[in-house]
Simulated assay, not measured.
Amino acid sequence: MPKVLVLYYSSYGHIEQMADAIAEGARSAGAQVDILRVPETAPQAVVEAAHFKTDTAHPVIAGPQVLTEYDAIIVGAPTRFGRMASQMAAFWDTAGGLWASGALHGKVAGAFTSTATQHGGQETTLFSIITNLLHFGLTIVGLDYGHAAQMGVDKVRGGAPYGATTVAGGDGSRQPDADELAGARYQGRRIAEVAAKLAG
């Protein structure tokens, strides 16, 4: 049974919902799953003024060393001007010791994100996460086209072959829809399956 960590940062709850769905998918493949958040780095005044969502059931990760306890790490963060949010980047910036020791080599990983618009940097944000993960020696699993609901132009659709995504809308009012949550569950399941095969 692989151990899977879903590690995320969420300002308004969209990524938190996707994290829950990713975890559900991984558990459906028999994985033991934990969901943790990275620390908030924005000043409290900014958090309050921007009305960030601060109530969550998921604890903050104790530090980068925790990553070594897992067979797979699935990382989610919203986009900030076409790249991962600084809160997530700051966490990985503290993990240099793991990079130097190769402690994460061979583990499985994936990325997921949220943007305000369909063309708001989903793929570049996924790649900013994936680039970090590759530097740490992780093996990437994306959202393959077995999740066919990422295709089509009949409605607003999240999803990319590089990872599960959702579109929040400019005011954050749009929530992840059934297809986007299904994509997150699909990616979580696939990552857990690959982790199990590599561990076997």
Rank of each mutant, 00 (worst) to 15 (best):
H105Y: 04
G30S: 15
G96Y: 09
R27G: 07
L36N: 02
P64I: 05
F91H: 07
S173C: 10
Q122L: 07
F136H: 15
R174P: 02
V60Q: 13
V38Y: 06
L36C: 10
G97F: 08
Q44K: 15
E16W: 06
W92P: 02
F52Y: 15
D171M: 10
I74H: 02
F127G: 00
D171C: 03
E69S: 12
M1H: 13
L143P: 06
D93Y: 12
A148K: 08
A168V: 11
G158E: 01
P59E: 13
V141G: 02
P176Q: 08
G188V: 01
Q118D: 14
S10G: 14
G97D: 12
T125P: 07
Q87R: 05
T113M: 03
G30R: 03
D20I: 08
V6K: 07
T139A: 03
D34W: 08
E180N: 03
D154H: 10
G200T: 10
G102S: 10
H119N: 14
A62H: 06
T117P: 00
G30E: 12
Y186G: 01
I129H: 00
G25T: 11
Y186Q: 05
I15P: 02
H58P: 01
L138C: 14
Y162P: 01
A168L: 08
M88T: 05
T166K: 05
I22V: 15
V38S: 09
K3M: 12
G200S: 11
A184M: 08
E180S: 00
D20C: 02
I74Y: 01
G63D: 14
A192Y: 03
A95D: 09
H119Y: 13
L5P: 08
G188W: 03
P2E: 12
S101L: 08
D179Y: 05
I61S: 10
D154N: 15
G25W: 02
G172H: 06
V194D: 06
V194N: 06
E40M: 09
Q175C: 01
T125D: 02
G137V: 02
E48K: 14
A29V: 02
K53Y: 04
R83Y: 01
